[in-house]
Design a protein around this nucleic acid. Sequence first.
DNA 1: ACGCCGCCTTGATCTGCGTCAACACGTCCA
DNA 2: TGGACGTGTTGACGCAGATCAAGGCGGCGT
Lengths: 254, 254
Amino acid sequence: MSPFDINRIRELGPAVSNESVEREPGPSPCGACSVRHLTFCAPMAEDELGHVSKIVSTIELHPGDPLFDEGEPADSVYSVTAGAVKVYKLMPDGRRQVIGFLFSGDFMGLAHNDMYAYSAEAITHSAVCRFPRKKLEQLLERFPKMERRLLGMASHELAAAQEQMLLLGRKTAKEKIASFLLHLSKRAEARGQNPNPIAVPMSRTDIGDYLGLTTETVSRTFTQLKTSHLISLQPANKVELVDLQALRDIAEGA
Amino acid sequence: MSPFDINRIRELGPAVSNESVEREPGPSPCGACSVRHLTFCAPMAEDELGHVSKIVSTIELHPGDPLFDEGEPADSVYSVTAGAVKVYKLMPDGRRQVIGFLFSGDFMGLAHNDMYAYSAEAITHSAVCRFPRKKLEQLLERFPKMERRLLGMASHELAAAQEQMLLLGRKTAKEKIASFLLHLSKRAEARGQNPNPIAVPMSRTDIGDYLGLTTETVSRTFTQLKTSHLISLQPANKVELVDLQALRDIAEGA
DNA sequence: ACGCCGCCTTGATCTGCGTCAACACGTCCA
DNA sequence: TGGACGTGTTGACGCAGATCAAGGCGGCGT
């Protein structure tokens, strides 16, 4: 699991160093960001790539750092290049709904009007790429095919959101937790990370706010799954999915 | 009161008839469909419009008629031109989550892969416009700006889905119902219909499956709001929002 | 006109999860 | 070294909403 084997692309734009690459689990803004440009816009011709790399900048975030808040003018779109970020909505009395957890390769900030629809905050030490909206739009003007890629990503997001509605509206606590773990595993695999002892970097409270549960219920359900030998809790916030099929059965409500 | 009782599904082929304009609140496939093309793709040049009208066909649906099922190959995108349609997901044991209610001007079927992510079924006597995916894609090739419109619509959908997550995960039954009624009202207004005594064409069961509640709780909450003089239930499934501000306060959890 | 059938409403009871509370454990810093 | 703090776990109890059950009502077909 070597984080980023750079070589892929060298940044042409500002704030670029073609040598500085961290191989750590920690963020590696530049290298990872390059990789992300590819993911974000791939496949992309050389000239396109040049244009894209000129408009981005990398931001490093520490655990708990806010990136933007719901209601702020949405002047940028972001792509996560390392770490984990949560996006959430708040009610006036403080009730919180986590809309999603973002990892390397995920994007956020596509707003249908001019304001962010949610707040974003780093969970772990993270790095994100910033795409100023104005410049991104100019780029879309120039390379209309990028819109299809964006549309594809938005559709994907939409399908995920609808799946989450089913979870929030109709699943039990146990089904929610099982679905959540399987989802995390699938996404880790998709991004080339170890899908089985999965990293679970977010707190019980965050998980609860994502699944429509309290931290106590999350905790109890974890121990229940552990006691039934479906999962095993490991050090460093890792969770091993011991009986995948049983978890799948539970997640689907079978 | 059956505005039209013609043959069930009447495919209108390439030509959009420009004369048949209905004046009824009931569905009006041809006229409305034309209008919808405009909405779907507006603003659109004359030649574009010509192209679009060549690829669509109109389908008439009666209450309870299915349009497509989750898991089917997604060969078409649909735009509702009259009536009301629900889209929903099912769990193996029959639990149901209604993902959304669609009215005139709404579209569905944007799938991120090749299968529909949900099932669609008419609630009232309805009409929808069918856009074969293949032909739509050719059109997108020819008129890339349409993709921006589609992207805008998808982003809008996404924001709505995220708002619904907050509702499903964190709101009480009363807050859910109040939010739902206000949402219906806003959408009726957006489409130029009466926003106050609002039409509520879907059943209590559908509402419950949309809000993550049972029909009994939906019913009880309606009577509770009625008893508190916040709403008034009128004949023909109409609901009057008597105290808008109080409803808004409840919906926001204030 | 009648009876059937869906949908809605209402009541009684049950329960999954929330709430409140206590405590264990690790980390940080004085 | 100790204590304050944040995070996680566990227990006891309560409640919002689910479940079970019983009508009411209106539309529709014969």
